[in-house]
């Protein structure tokens, strides 16, 4: 198993944190992981993104040319990365914010009201958690839910750890609603 993910969104949507969370959870499961942010001037303005590789094998390059999975938390991220996803790949996109829906027919496209799910818990900053929930549902071999929940306490700074109960609820909300999307 090797998955190459790009996670993208506005600054402040917790894009880098999302990547680290998945990496730490997978690392604790004995997987090989790498995480690299887009860095410097290129991340100002537009989108922030990070590339995450999770694999049973040693990881060659942390740089991802053709991702197998993209989580796009805003419109510019869909525009930027839709075309780069491998045929048969997965695109989870934030249908709460994205106006122009993705159109490729050779992908698994998952619209997720990630920001709305977060707002239901009283914050707009948890869209990334909803997206991880969806991802775990769609890719059960990637990393188990309990590993991600455990990783929350390791990755989130002491100052923000008080939000983890909310983070967990949004994570589960994303997971459960994706069950419904899939069923539909």
């Amino acid at each position: 198993m090797t998955e190459e993910l790009i996670i993208a969104g506005f600054g402040g949507q917790g894009v880098l944190l999302t990547g680290r969370l998945l990496c730490v959870a997978a690392m604790r499961q004995g997987k090989h992981v790498s995480h690299i942010p887009s860095y410097g001037a290129e991340m100002r303005g537009g989108t922030a993104n990070c590339s995450v590789v999770i694999s049973d094998e040693e990881i060659a390059s942390p740089v991802i040319e053709r991702p197998s999975i993209v989580i796009a938390l805003n419109g510019p991220s869909v525009a930027k990365f839709e075309s780069r996803i491998r045929p048969g790949g997965l695109l989870i996109w934030n249908s709460s914010l994205v106006k122009m829906a993705p159109t490729r027919s050779d992908l698994v496209l998952i619209p997720l009201d990630a920001t709305d799910l977060s707002l239901a818990e009283g914050t707009e900053r948890g869209a990334n958690m909803a997206a991880i929930g969806a991802l775990l549902k769609l890719k059960p071999d990637l990393v188990p839910m309990d590993a991600v929940e455990a990783a929350l306490d390791e990755v989130i700074s002491a100052r923000n750890r008080k939000h983890n109960p909310v983070n967990r609820r949004i994570l589960h909300a994303g997971y459960e609603i994706t069950e419904k999307i899939n069923a539909a």
């Binding site: 090989h32 992981v33 995480h35 942010p37 390059s61 942390p62």
Partner: peptide, 9 residues
């Protein structure tokens, strides 16, 4: 730069 920027175990 990739070695410096990448997070790994």
């Amino acid at each position: 730069g990739y070695i410096g920027q990448m997070s790994e175990p």
